[in-house]
Amino acid sequence: MTTRRTPMVVLGTLVGLVAIGSFRASPAALSMTTTAPAPTSVTATSRTTPTSTNHSTTTPSAVRSQTGSTVNYNYGTLAVSVTVQGKTITNISVPSLNDGGNSYSQSLDSMSIPILTKEAMAAQSASIQSVSGASYTSAGFIQSLQSALTALGI
């Protein structure tokens, strides 16, 4: 049962494109991507852990980072920074988070931001389709991430 799926090495890039396509969706528009056929030479091996995000792309691509615009969310403001290699997201962080010193909000943020990061990264993993958790998903997070990706021309 551990050989049900191919290594993420191959799929990371393909699914990554799907995920990035999703972040381009503006509220008024639908995003659509077509999945590409899998290479026929794929060798099935043990599943990689879905927490890994090191897609080893075979073609060298520039690593670039961009911080998105600062946006309002329910408890304050935040800005999301994204690092991409080629068109694949390799890291997401939240360098700017201002919740006005609200301690309830801070404890919330310290938990929810990693979940949001996880969710965005997981969208690129070939192993899983979604994340279940007691998460607080911030529209502001998506908005800032989108602006960062747009600035990177992705």
């Binding site: 995003s31 999945t35 056929p37 998506i142």
Partner: peptide, 26 residues
């Protein structure tokens, strides 16, 4: 067991909707 991973006959669409104080992903 060998399986075809990405089926070229399939396409996917994702919609993220701000609603109910959160984002719902379809």
């Amino acid at each position: 067991m060998t399986t075809s991973i990405l089926d070229p006959t399939t396409w996917t669409m994702r919609r993220e909707e701000e609603v109910m104080g959160t984002v719902v992903v379809l």
